[in-house]
């Protein structure tokens, strides 16, 4: 199977002061197949969104920049594209939906206007045809009386409906890759399941590769085929979803899974990982997770762990190797 999206050795730096930079994400390798979902999971500040924005080339101008690696879209390295070429890729080949549907749609234009705009940027189509096609898209994402909705403003729709509009818009150009950046975080729990279900259905129907960013392991279990666990701007574990849940190897993945409240256990207090993700500027010298890891050794504190391949799994931890060298550095 071909991978429409492949990222190799991506590194993104952020400017934090005059001639001062921090590395936001490093050594990101990933690939997504058509009709499959790659789930990216981790706490806030682990570099999930930075990775997505880097792929869309939507890093804040003059602040974030891709310093190394390549992003291959159908084999074409889009980090080398001109801004004009990128513009034609955005929305056409890669679409994106965002966390907060309440603010992601422009409040002063009707839903129809924004849907039609998307279509007309990327293809020669009359306003009338674009209107009809948009109505069909709204129908596809399960919006009742789509024709009336076209004339409504975003504030007249509920959060779930707006996210459906965003999905309709993102998929209207039949992109090869859909990046969903926490698409359900801002929604009601009941709506969350519907939206995930919708994304899953459409993914199969349109054979789109989906990159699903979330901090919710439950969302991963429900939607992802492959999972990439990120911590402190690095990939700490990468595996298919079933083996990852059955046999989590990285201590961070284990902690994340332990944090899910379980109905079959009677616990007074929910499990949580101690501490918070350190700021990008104060990442520990060795393993980034060493400050919070329960199995941390001296080696972890001072030296960066290598990425070890075990079967189909990639894991970045000293536990699984006898090697003394740090190949990544």
């Amino acid at each position: 199977m071909s991978s429409p999206l492949e990222v190799k050795g991506l590194r993104v730096d952020f400017k934090v002061g005059k001639n001062k930079y921090v590395t936001a994400v490093k050594d990101i390798n990933l690939s997504i197949e058509r009709g499959k979902t790659l789930g990216i999971v981790g706490e806030s500040g682990c570099g999930k969104s930075v990775t997505a924005n880097a792929i869309m080339q939507l890093l804040p101008k003059g602040i974030g920049s891709i310093e190394a690696g390549s992003i291959l879209l159908d084999g074409q390295d889009i980090t080398k594209c001109t801004p004009d070429e990128i513009r034609q890729i955005r929305g056409k080949k890669i679409s994106m939906i965002f966390q907060d549907p309440m603010t992601a749609l422009n409040p002063v234009y009707t839903v129809g206007n924004q849907l039609i705009e998307m279509l007309r940027v990327h293809q020669k189509i009359s306003r009338k045809d674009a209107f009809e096609y948009s109505v069909k898209m709204l129908e596809k994402v399960g919006i009742p009386s789509p024709r009336e909705r076209m004339k409504e403003y975003p504030h007249q729709l509920s959060g779930g409906m707006r996210q459906r509009v965003m999905i309709a818009m993102a998929l209207s150009t039949e992109p090869e890759v859909l990046i969903a950046d926490e698409p359900t975080t801002a929604l009601d729990v009941t709506i969350q399941a519907q939206i995930l279900e919708l994304i899953n259905q459409l993914k199969v129907k349109t054979n789109t590769a989906v990159m699903l960013i979330t901090h919710d392991m439950g969302v991963i279990a429900e939607s992802a085929d492959d999972v990439m666990v990120m911590y402190g701007g690095e990939v700490v574990e990468y595996d298919e979803v079933v083996p990852l849940f059955e046999n989590p190897m990285h201590p961070y993945t284990r902690d994340l899974l332990n944090s899910i409240p379980r109905l079959d256990e009677d616990r007074e207090e929910l499990y949580s990982i101690k501490g918070t993700v350190p700021g990008l500027a104060d990442m520990p010298k060795g393993c980034h997770f060493s400050t919070r890891c329960t199995e941390c050794t001296n080696k972890c504190k001072t030296r960066k762990p290598p990425t070890v391949q075990i079967g189909g799994k990639l894991v970045k931890c000293w536990k699984y190797t006898d090697r003394e060298d740090t190949t990544d550095e």
């Binding site: 939507l58 929305g91 994106m96 907060d100 422009n106």
Partner: peptide
Amino acid sequence: GEDYIKTARSKGLK
């Protein structure tokens, strides 16, 4: 700085 500006950019608008 609003989200919908990011949406507009991600749509590939000039």
